[in-house]
Nucleic acid binder design. Structure first.
Lengths: 161, 161
DNA sequence: CTTGATGCAAAATATTTGCATGCTC
DNA sequence: GAGCATGCAAATATTTTGCATCAAG
């Protein structure tokens, strides 16, 4: 994983390049994403930032604006699934895809080189300039499946009573 | 592609199984998805249904409720990307993935058997019971790229003037 | 200083829900 | 007839925007 300082320099470089300003809020939001492994909604990120820096008043609007900026610049990635809206994670990690459990919401990251390669091939096939790609495998994780099996056994017992 | 009658029977079967009712609205929404190739937002689907059956008053709430039902039962699939919210397409097509152009919004469907296979493998690796998966390749399509190149050539001409 | 960034609140969207009434079964 | 489904409108939730003010460059 990239270290925080690198991300911070990247952010500064990008801002300078686009003649935008480096602000406390932008830094705090980047840091919140960096420090918290996981996938968060804008609201959750807002809460995280407020916890880290209770003195800095950061508005939810700024969180939305900053997340859009970070995503555009590749410093954050977003993911959305099912009912839940968009969720963000820090960008510039090694590229990876996601397994999502529909029962408990757990998200597992994985990398499969063969898939990565095939995606390039598909891009070439359709003469598409690929800028990004995402893959989600939806299903039920081991733990939830086992819990479910246990429950259905209990159900059977119940029925026999 | 499955024919409409099959989908309709499926819907009826599912509804009966869950002791739910087969209604005009549910049928209209399924048909709108079937008749219109593409990926639509709930609002667009609402509009499509109203055009098809101007006499049937179908509320937007019913569209949301029905889409959720259809998706849950696999008769519709949803996709979400960037700013745009969720978009739906008819389900039970051959499984496929999507190429999405960020310039013009075009969505191309494709199938790659190798990727399909690898996904199964990933599921096994993490002991995940896969119920679905989606892959999106984001980028710029041929047409938009060419249009862009043309523009940047014009820009250069401008600069020389 | 100049210009972009922010917070706030209001506005615009998007989605869900309560409830009286209408339709399937 | 019983009970789910619907439309409508109200309630929520989510995201965006206008604007006065603040702060980075």
């Amino acid at each position: 994983m990239v270290d925080y300082d690198f991300l911070l320099q990247e952010l500064k470089r990008i801002l300078k390049e686009k003649q935008l300003k480096f602000t406390r809020q932008r830094e705090l939001i980047l840091k919140a994403l960096y420090d918290n492994p996981g996938h968060f909604s804008p609201e959750e990120i807002h809460r995280l930032v407020q916890q880290t820096a209770p003195d800095a008043k950061v508005g939810i609007a700024t969180v939305y604006r900053t997340l859009a900026l970070l995503e555009e610049e590749g410093l954050a990635d977003s993911l959305s699934f099912g009912k839940e809206g968009k969720r963000y994670e820090i960008g510039l990690k090694k590229h990876h895809d996601h397994l999502i459990c529909t029962r408990c919401g757990k998200i597992i990251e994985f990398v499969d080189e063969v898939i990565e390669e095939r995606q390039e091939a598909v891009g070439r096939r359709f003469d598409f300039t690929i800028t990004d790609h995402t893959m989600k495998i939806i299903g039920i994780c081991k733990e939830c499946r086992e819990a479910e099996e246990k429950n259905s056994q209990q159900d059977k017992k119940q029925e026999t009573l």
